[in-house]
Each structure stands twice: as C-alpha cells, then as structure tokens.
Nucleic acid binder design. Structure first.
Lengths: 233, 233
DNA sequence: TAGTGGTCTAGACCACAAA
DNA sequence: TTGTGGTCTAGACCACTAC
C-alpha cells in the first residue's frame, strides 16, 4: 500500500524545510506543535522532535519551551571550515608534501606571549619555526610557541621529521582552540621563506590552543600568496 | 538514594568524552557497544545512542554499523564562522553603521561571470557597488552581481537605504552558498574606497549563492586593513 | 549470517517560561 | 497554572557490513 513504509525523521525534516523555503511558513511564523506535526505525519512525537532539533541546529528554526517553534527571521548560517593538518591539505591537492624544521630554541616566554596565553611570567616555552612545502614550493611558514609546563615531553621530541602540529595532535589530541584569519604584508623574513617579495599580501592564520583549560600553544601560520580558505555552507 | 535521579545523555556524553581525553580509551580504540554502555550507565540504549551520536558529530568518535564505535585517530575539528549581515557585525562592535550605494547598473553578464555562476550567455544581471562604514570609517567595500532571471524584483528595489545583502536575505532567506577568503593587495580603486594606499593587504571574501539550485548572486567583499575573521572551535 | 548502530514507537515525566 | 519542548524508557525492527 504505502510506498514509504515508515515515516522517518528525514521525511519530516525535509518537508518542514521545504515549507519554510516555500514561505508556506514565513519568517517569524509559529510552527505547529510537535504533537500536531506528529499527528499530521502519522508518526511519534519523538520523530518530529528529532527532525525539528536538526533544523534548529542548522539555524532554520528557533525553539523555546512553552512558546513553540518559530521560523528564524535572520537565519544565521554558519560556514564550517575543517582545520586539518597541513600535510593533509597538501596531500589532498595531490601534491608532494615536504617539511623542514628551520629553528628551535627554548626561552622564557616574552611578555606579549604571557599576555596572549595567560602565562605566568618566566614560563619556559619552546619556540619553533618550520616550513611546509607542496611540490617543493613554499606552502606555509609556521612559527610556534609551546608551553613547556603543559607539554614538557616536547622538549625532548624529535621534530626534524614530523611537524609540531602533528606531534601535538598525537600527544594531546582533543583540545579547544581559537583561530583568526587576517591579511598581512610579508616582511623580509617571510618573503624569504615564502619565496615572494616583501609587501606581498599573505594570509595569516593565528591559533591559540588549550587543553583542559591550560594554554598549550600559540601558532602563526602564513601561507603562500594566492592561498584561499574555502567552504560551502 | 541516587544523587542523580535520571541518567541523562549529557552524563553519558561527558563521561565518554572524559575517558577519551584521559586516554582511558586511546585513539583508535573500540568503545563498548551501545548495549554494553547502556548497561554500565543503567540507562536505555537510545540514551547512549544520542550521546555517541553527538560525539560523532563533534568529531570525537567514528561510528560504523557492525564495526562499532572507535575513537578518531585524527580528530578533524571544524571551525564554525557565522556569516552575518555586515550591519550586525558593525553594530556588535558598538559602532555606528552607515551604508552607501555607490553605483548601480544593469548589464549582460560578462563572460567570467557566466562561467562563475553557470549562466546562459546574455543573462541580464544587476551590478552593484556599495560601501559599509563603521563609525564613518570604511569597513567593507562590496561589489555584487545579481542574476535578474532568479530575482527580477530587485531591479525595482530601492537599494539606497538598505544593502543588497539584507534585501536579498529578506527576499530569499534560505540559500546555499560557497565562500572563500583570500588576502589581496588593494588596487587603486579599492584603496580609494577603503581609505588606504594601493598595495595594502586586505581580506577578500568571495561568495556565490544559490537558491534551489539556481545561481542568485556573486559578491566580492573587501575589508578595511586589519580586519580579522575569528572563531572558536 | 550475525553483530552493531540507526531509527521508530507509545507512553511517561520533567523543565522551563508565558499568562 | 498550563502549554510546549526536552528527554528517558523498553521494546522492536531495520540496514548496513564484516565475517
């Protein structure tokens, strides 16, 4: 009899989404209650709940107890970027990845860094400079400071073959982070590393990372001219 | 007797997350099955399912039927950026927003645009240039092309007071989009608009938008020097 | 073929917030 | 106080996929 033997939450979700996009339920409108929708679709309320919860996560509707579910007036869409390991980005472009450790030293954290990471003054940090290449052309210059209080083991690590990001990701895989993109002009040092001319606009990605509330590392990653960060949403 | 009368999926999710972060379940390890966890936590399997599904969405674990649930070896974390209306960004900084329509014309889509959007040659488009100011200082220069086949009404719209993005968001709120960030040098025109000097690095945001599979608009937004795109993740 | 996650159901109780 | 979403349960069947 029925073409679709079961009413899945996919069905409900897609139909509700369709009605929103078709303005059958215009912006700001109140949707039927879960119970009413369950009756209309001939399914359990839990199924409707799952469907509407997903639409809420995706920013289509807003849900409030007692008030009900409303179509969002200003849909705030989120663009998602995957922040992957450089090596993976390069390899996905079918390019040959090469890594080089440029410099490594242990120092006391400079004042700006203690401020940036919220460190006690005098904290020892590992300072690293590395290059990442794609098909032997400069891809990314990485300058990093690692809090040795939190990750003492990295002081003994061999970072000549594996990048600090990969090492850290292996040592403390699940971290919180804050990132920022900006456009900056390459200075002389950067221009050297990226094989370009001083003043060239390059994309700077800065990232601060915490593990269980403790500041782990701050890194500045500058990319070759022409680098683009892309995302669908 | 029980401190926690009900076992919520939050409890399960947080405890599983804790075990992953504590390496009790190391990377690549197989977790107990849903049924086993349900027994351990004394809850229904659906509750465990909800908890693990969230952890999978957040990239902590990977789930496969028959295989079971594994801790992800290379956690791919996603940074989420909210792509909001310029006016909202400015107003969130407690700055005064001002908008100006610089130029407006209707033309046939140039070749590069027909290619970019997948238009038929000869398609009429609305070409717009606008400025957005924060506290009377240049914030963003916007150059936009709108497909008049899909949004004919915009040809008659008064865009001198409200920006095209807000107009479009009101006309067709739910769209698919692709965006890209890059660092570019301001050319002479851009330097004029952004009150800077030619060659200055600026952040360029390009966005292509579709509605129900039809190309709606392509926009290039360049920002004042020093503009940063930020996100926690 | 069998094991594991994916999902649905019907009912229940709870938590929050509007009236 | 009451309506609405938030969640849990116990059981069931399904859909993939490793074996």
């Amino acid at each position: 009899m029925k073409q679709q033997t079961r009413t899945s939450f996919h069905t409900v979700r897609d139909e509700v989404k369709r009605r929103i996009e078709s303005r059958i339920w215009p912006q700001g409108a109140l949707l039927p209650t879960e119970a009413e929708l369950a009756q209309e679709f001939g399914c359990a309320r839990a199924t409707v709940n799952r469907a509407l919860r997903e639409l809420a996560e995706q920013g289509f509707v807003e849900r409030r107890r007692k008030s009900g579910t409303r179509v969002k007036t200003a849909p705030v869409k989120q663009a998602r970027f995957e922040i992957a390991i450089v090596r993976h980005i390069v390899e996905e472009q079918n390019a040959e990845y090469r890594y080089a450790l440029v410099d490594r030293s242990v120092t006391e954290a400079p004042a700006w860094l203690t401020s940036q990471l919220g460190l006690k003054s005098g904290t020892r940090v590992l300072h690293l400079m590395c290059m990442h290449y794609a098909n032997n052309r400069p891809f990314q210059f990485e300058e990093r400071w690692v809090n040795l209080d939190v990750v003492p083991a990295i002081e003994q690590a061999d970072l000549s073959r594996i990048g600090p990001n990969e090492w850290l990701l292996n040592a403390i895989p699940f971290t919180d982070a804050e990132i920022a993109f900006s456009a900056v002009a390459a200075d002389n040092r950067l221009a050297d590393f990226l094989a370009t001319t001083p003043g060239t606009p390059v994309m700077l990605l800065e990232r601060t990372t915490w593990f269980k509330g403790q500041p782990v590392t701050f890194v500045r990653m500058t990319h070759h001219p022409g680098y683009r960060v892309r995302s669908e949403y």
